[in-house]
Computed example of a mutant assay.
Amino acid sequence: MTSRLLPYATTPGRLLIQLFSDVVVAVWTFLWVLVGLAVHGAVATIAGVGQQFEQGANGVAESLASAGHSANRIPLVGDAVSKPLTAAGEAAVDIAGAGHDLNTTAGWLAYLLAVAVAAPPILAVAMPWLALRLRFFLHKRAVLTLYSSMAGQQLLALRALTNRPLSRLTAVSPDPAGAWRHADPGVIGGLAALELHSAGLARRPRRGPNR
């Protein structure tokens, strides 16, 4: 993959700043993902309690139902003994249902709270970083496209005359504006190179054909 397709500068200083920002965003995201996982784990513990509660209540309900059926076969008092056991078994089924609801609710709540805790701080940093990087990439492609033609270099040179400090302009030519008006290819290339450098791109001035 060529550097033209990468959202990174080619000048060492700006490239170092971009790499440092990448590391900061990556570490920030990693830390908040850990926080989100911790929140998920804490809430998921409640879901685990609900699941255990459900399983235990179902086991009790099955035992009471079995005992009720067995007691029903006792002569004379079987019906009187089996009714309380059956009622207790039904109550245990209701408790198991409550445990199931707790398990289900706490399960999706664990994911929801994890995202709610981790997403805002991650997006607060990642979105501006992504927007700035995308803006740089588009600007880089536009500058490189202009630099690839003599007419584009003239436009970049004009931008340099407008935007760059006077000391840098006179370092290219004692009369940069006059040289630009006379279409001096060497001066135009040097001014265009200033605009490249301001965009974070290190390129040698491309000279036009000698007149």
Rank of each mutant, 00 (worst) to 15 (best):
M150Q: 13
A192R: 10
L138I: 14
A151K: 12
A177P: 06
M127I: 14
A179Y: 12
L191R: 02
T162Q: 13
F137A: 12
L64K: 01
N210W: 12
G56I: 02
I95A: 14
R159M: 11
L191V: 03
P121C: 15
V172A: 02
G89E: 04
V143I: 08
A157M: 02
L85F: 07
Q52R: 09
G152A: 06
D175K: 12
Q154D: 10
S21H: 11
P120T: 10
V60Q: 14
V125K: 14
A114N: 08
W108P: 00
G78K: 00
T10Q: 02
L130H: 15
T45L: 12
D79F: 03
G186Q: 15
R14S: 10
V23T: 12
A91E: 02
T86R: 08
P120E: 11
G190A: 06
A98E: 09
H197R: 10
R133V: 04
A47F: 01
P174T: 08
L31F: 13
H182P: 01
D79I: 04
L16A: 11
L16T: 10
V25I: 13
A110P: 04
A199V: 03
R135F: 04
L194G: 09
T45Q: 12
W180Y: 04
A87Y: 10
G48E: 01
R73S: 08
T29S: 12
A157G: 02
G13A: 11
A61I: 07
A160Y: 00
M127N: 11
R211D: 12
A92C: 01
A119C: 09
S173V: 04
E62I: 06
R141W: 05
V35Y: 11
A116C: 14
T29N: 12
V27P: 08
L113S: 04
S63K: 00
Q52L: 15
M127T: 14
